[in-house]
Design a binder for these strands. Structure first.
Lengths: 354, 354
DNA sequence: TTTAGCACTCATCCTTCCTGAGTGCTAAAG
DNA sequence: CTTTAGCACTCAGGAAGGATGAGTGCTAAA
């Protein structure tokens, strides 16, 4: 059943007023606000209908109405005006993106940080490996005679490194040998293909090198594992205290500690994120995780390339400025996609001196 | 003027009880608790003296006493029993340290995370460069024909990398040339020595390579800059909500947002951290930063080697379990110092398979 | 110097009351 | 059939007024 035009207009007014003020909205206020030329009594009748249909709720008999999750859903789907960011803002975001994106594996975290700053909500960011990753290359760099750094690069172009110290001297040629060995024996293998047997064989070929091969390969395995199981970052959790729905410290604490459990957050949001491809909005009970049943989540995903997908999102009370958040989020996601998709020219700014 | 033995005993009892319960302590409770064979009236007299001397405070006339910052100070300096961690605990911490310490530049952050988990307070971690850093080595790794990764290693053995994309093809030999050029022209230079002129000269020697030299060197400069100006990490800010002194959301929010301003935190704590070398305790108003005037900070520093010093610490209400926190903190700091100071043998555990 | 006793203070809790925003319903008007 | 005015009703939230009890300071006796 379709709602009448007038009902929609009223519902929209309720949602938007409530988003702004966090106070239940009454019939009188609506009569002025909604731009309808009817009396508050008429509005009351309509409100009663909307409540019965499940789009609005009443905190108590003598209070105004607030949107129910269903109400928000309708609003988001049909009533909400897509917010356009000004060119100015878009530009700012993109500049910030270019500036901040340093190391590839930190992109995810930075993206989260940015989104949180932009929206004033807690944000999270994660990456989902769609395919199995492999090691693309090993480099061993001598630091001094007793230590070296292993640099491991995956086929998704993430580079990680670790310092190893050794009880005995190590010469450049030895290291060269090891590097070659590593590169021939282990490159192109997925995590499961890096078996202990393989390591034993390589170890043997290397002769007596204190089990270095195993050490480095174990490190590589950890790297692959971490990447495939998608690290999650949450940023700006303290922003939830900005919103009146979390004036109750107990509530705030519950949500916060849930947000800092990166694992569960990832599980709860991985699926929805990968379905659609534009921004996705999950309102209150639509979330699978119990802890999120009365919060909303706005997600956007972007392509990192090489079968990796990044997901960024925002968590907040159901009373969230969906239009604004969605706009910003999709701007960031777009920016990131472009950042990964297209070659980065030496930027126009000629030379940065400070 | 020295306090009498009995006064000290009472002060200590007040502090310890208050640390546990967060409730003002009354004379009657103390009479039983403090193990003194005197009546509550006597205690009352002593309490009155201690209050007059400034070691205790009264929230209001008919409440018990709570320690003043001065009281905590005396407690920490003279009365507190150094807490020893059990061997079990020490071992656990050290194991966790070894397990978690992956990439060198992430050590700092991880250390903070650990401390926060261990103490249930928000923690921060930072590194202070005592001397100027230089680049030790450049590596350029070809990803595909249109992009490469620059790996930069500083003389403090931190390795950072960044992906560069290019409008045109790039061959392995070209990259080799660039690498050599970078390594001859820029290695061993401090940040200020990497002048634009130097870059122009090198650029010229490289011929037409789209200004790649500048790009890579700029990246290196950013790395040096970031390292020297000590990144700060704060972790577990949400823990402050665990403590009753922050039931007031306004207060909690203020502290939280201060904690997330990494810069100011670093400034406020860099100095004290570098002075002493064991753990250092700053109580309430002893902090320079206004925002920390009614919180306490416990700090420990450790040597990263190569002129870098790491600082970890914990922030909490003045009513903090100083003994416990200090013990854990110094255990972690010791562990880290050892980790950096001594060669890491291939650990005893023969082979980790999961 | 210590202790018992007593009057006093004051945060906290509970109850009660009041106010006002907002409702639902009814009956008249359009 | 829809809209409106009017009115009785509900109920959260704040203000005001005790009552409670933990804890104090002081005094006078041991």
């Amino acid at each position: 059943m379709e709602l009448s035009e007038r009902k929609k207009k009223i519902l929209r007014a309720v949602v938007e007023s409530y988003i702004q003020t966090a106070e239940p909205v009454g019939s009188k206020a609506l009569a002025e606000l909604a731009g309808l030329k009817v009396s508050s009594a008429t509005i009351r009748n309509e409100l009663a209908d909307l409540t019965e249909l499940g789009f609005l709720e009443q905190p108590h008999t003598s209070a105004g109405r607030i949107p129910s999750p269903q109400g928000y859903r309708l609003y988001v789907n049909e009533l909400m005006e897509e917010q356009r960011l000004s060119l100015e803002e878009t530009k700012q975001i993109n500049e910030a993106l270019h500036l901040k994106m340093q190391e590839l594996d930190k992109v995810i975290g930075q993206a989260g940080r940015m989104v949180s700053q932009l929206t004033n909500y807690p944000a999270f960011a994660m990456a989902e490996g769609v395919r199995r990753l492999t090691i693309k290359r090993f480099d061993l760099i001598l630091v001094d005679s007793a230590s070296f750094i292993a640099v491991v690069m995956t086929d998704s172009s993430v580079v990680k490194n670790k310092l190893f110290r050794l009880p005995a001297e190590l010469s450049e040629p030895q290291l060269q040998l090891l590097t070659t060995l590593l590169n021939t024996a282990f490159v192109g293998k997925t995590l499961d293909q890096l078996t202990p047997e393989l390591m034993r064989v390589a170890e043997h070929a290397a002769g007596s090198s204190y089990g270095l091969i195993s050490l480095v390969v174990s490190f590589a395995m950890e790297v692959l594992d971490a990447l495939e199981n998608g690290a999650v970052y949450t940023v700006g959790a303290s922003h939830i205290l900005d919103h009146p729905e979390y004036q109750d410290v107990g509530k705030a604490q519950k949500l916060m500690s849930y947000l800092s459990e990166d694992r569960s957050l990832a599980q709860a949001l991985a699926l929805p994120a990968l379905e659609g491809d534009d921004t996705k909005i999950l309102i209150g009970p639509e979330n699978v995780a119990d802890e999120l049943k009365d919060t909303s989540v706005v997600l956007a995903s972007y392509d990192i390339g090489d079968g990796m997908k990044g997901v960024i999102g925002v968590v907040g009370p159901t009373r969230m400025d969906y239009a604004r958040v969605a706009a910003k989020l999709s701007c960031v996601a777009d920016g990131l996609s472009k950042l990964f998709g297209q070659p980065e020219l030496p930027p126009v700014t000629p030379e940065k001196e400070e």
